[in-house]
Design a protein around this nucleic acid. Structure first.
Lengths: 132, 132
DNA sequence: TTCGGTGCAAAGCCTTTGCATGTCT
DNA sequence: AGACATGCAAAGGCTTTGCACCGAA
């Protein structure tokens, strides 16, 4: 059963992540650490970021394959982590979501609200893990 | 100046997109249309989807390079389309967002709320387009 | 005729993975 | 010693792009 072991690289990567507000990508972390740790490899950065996410010590702001929608007005989506389906949610995207953001000085053009979890269908089937 | 011209492929691709609730990926559309239009190429599907998005006739549910964050609690983000920065928004992610979703039978594990637009910095500089 | 669109294939990113080597415990 | 982590490089996806041909206007 998987024990997790100390490594200098992992520590550096976590520290780099925890000490910035930039939401760095793997590449950004790599570029930051490489000068002071020349033997570091990009693969290690990827592996460790994924590891940290699994451990719950980091989140990833997700990238999926691009999906498209001909309904151009904003509406939230639900991504089922079990079956991979992406559902429309017929819920009004409360425009008041923008207010606090705009009061901070941002100009909002669009909102993407994506829920993650299990859809009713997968809940019914009792599929709680990822299907393959 | 760019005129846009009719093509059967573009029509088919738009129709396919408009007639489904599946939020298809480029690949999904390609697979759907290919049998009845064997000369169709995947590159054309990508080009047309991007075109439709630019025209405002479709939206893309975005994919960016994975970004990471060591703050593991949910909080919304703001992506500036001008400078490419991803900002934390120090706004409480109202848990009541989940209620209407859960009442539809979904089990919510996480929400990703990403605003798009211009950040205060770019607004100040008057940079309203994409910087290169 | 003109210039945008297409098909095809190659190239480009980002990310993952296989393998031999290194290193915590 | 044993198992996990690393570095390196190759392989894998998804997407874009260059080029020659096709076709709408």
């Amino acid at each position: 059963m998987g024990e997790s072991r100390y490594s200098k690289q992992r520590e550096l990567i976590y520290d780099a992540l925890a000490s910035t507000k930039e939401h760095p990508s793997a590449e950004m972390i790599y570029k930051e650490l490489k000068p002071s740790y020349p033997s570091l490899s990009l693969g290690t950065v990827y592996r460790n970021l994924n590891f940290l996410v699994e451990e719950g010590r980091a989140i990833s702001i997700p990238s999926t394959v691009n999906r498209y929608d001909a309904t151009t007005q904003d509406h939230p989506h639900f991504f089922c982590t079990c079956c991979g389906n992406l559902y429309d949610l017929d819920i009004s995207m409360d425009q008041t979501l923008d207010e606090p953001v705009e009061s901070l000085g941002y100009e909002v053009h669009r909102r993407d609200l994506i829920f993650n979890g299990l859809c009713p269908h997968c809940l019914k089937k009792g599929n709680f893990g990822t299907e393959d």
